[in-house]
């Protein structure tokens, strides 16, 4: 099994007619994802290589039965796009777009939590989600992942996620689902959401978690792992040597007021029984050892 998405997930792409949306939407379709519709209020009735375009998400859902959406709309439109999808009844929203203002993110996170508790948001500023062999929503290169499990991956970083998928594939290890939660201050889906889903998924036997500096999401995940996870977890946290007060590329990756250091995160995870690698390769090797002993 996989978490959040599988071969039956029908996806509408908000922004399919834009250059990024078109490029990745078609790549996702080629991978095997059920890309059933796109939206653009000005281009309703047209199509992108046979994928029908509707004016609204609600129209697309009614015509195609889509339950998930993927957002490639430029940053100023993301707040409206997320709310439109939630109001239409989409259950799983993947927002790829980077550069969304933090106040917008805080607003739609709380709006969904208050009014649309059955809608899950992933992102913004994330690579998306892939259940290898079944469904790929977002910008991950599908062929770098091996299907079938037993490992689940959750990550705050894009390229480090690809690195992890690729290293596991090289070692002959498959992945149930790989979730990129993104590097922004208010991610729609947290480490804990994914860890809980992996714990409940019978085909996932072990979890790899890739964190980075900033905030306290890794520390909170460590507490959750200690209290609730029976499955083994390996981890890597990027930014050990990041200087305080400097944002390291991601809006969320900053050490401020002595908080959010990689060292503190690694210690909290090790305390919770997680095997922590000093670099991505070592985390992959630790996972290979775990898988060999399953």
């Amino acid at each position: 099994m996989s978490i959040f998405v599988d071969e039956n997930t029908k996806v509408v792409y908000q922004g399919l007619t834009g250059s990024q949306g078109r490029y990745y939407g078609l790549l996702n379709k080629e991978y095997g994802t059920q890309v059933v519709a796109g939206t653009n209020p000005k281009k309703a009735g047209t199509d992108v290589e046979g994928i029908p375009i509707f004016a609204t998400v609600a129209d697309a859902m009614e015509a195609t039965g889509a339950t998930a959406s993927c957002i490639f709309i430029p940053a100023p439109g993301v707040k409206g796009a997320v709310l439109e999808a939630a109001e239409a009844g989409i259950e799983f929203i993947v927002a790829i777009t980077e550069g969304v203002p933090a106040h917008d993110e805080a607003y739609f996170f709380n709006k969904l939590r208050n009014d649309f508790p059955n809608t899950r948001l992933l992102g913004p500023n994330c690579p998306g989600i892939i259940s290898p062999g079944k469904c790929n929503i977002g910008i991950t290169a599908g062929h770098i992942a091996k299907a079938g499990g037993p490992v689940g991956i959750v990550s705050r970083s894009g390229t480090l996620t690809y690195q992890a998928l690729y290293e596991l594939k090289e070692k002959g290890i498959g992945v149930t689902t790989c979730v990129g939660i993104g590097g922004d201050p208010v991610p729609g889906t947290s480490f804990i959401d994914c860890l809980a889903a992996f714990e409940a998924d019978p085909e996932t036997k072990a979890v790899m978690m890739i964190g980075e500096i900033g905030g306290s999401a890794e520390e909170e995940a460590a507490e959750f792992i200690k209290a609730n996870m029976s499955k083994p977890v390996t981890s890597y946290v990027a930014g050990v040597t990041a200087p305080p007060g400097k944002k390291m590329g991601h809006a969320g990756a900053i050490v401020s007021g002595g908080k959010g250091t990689a060292q503190a995160k690694m210690e909290a995870l090790a305390d919770a029984g997680v095997k922590v690698g000093q670099n991505p390769t070592e985390a992959g090797e630790l996972m290979a050892e775990i898988v060999a002993n399953l």
């Binding site: 996620t161 990027a238 050990v240 990041a242 590329g249 990756a253 990689a262």
Partner: peptide, 12 residues
């Protein structure tokens, strides 16, 4: 490096 996470990791 390409990607914030990989660049951080490279520095590490």
């Amino acid at each position: 490096a390409n990607g914030a996470g990989l660049a951080m990791s490279t520095v590490d």
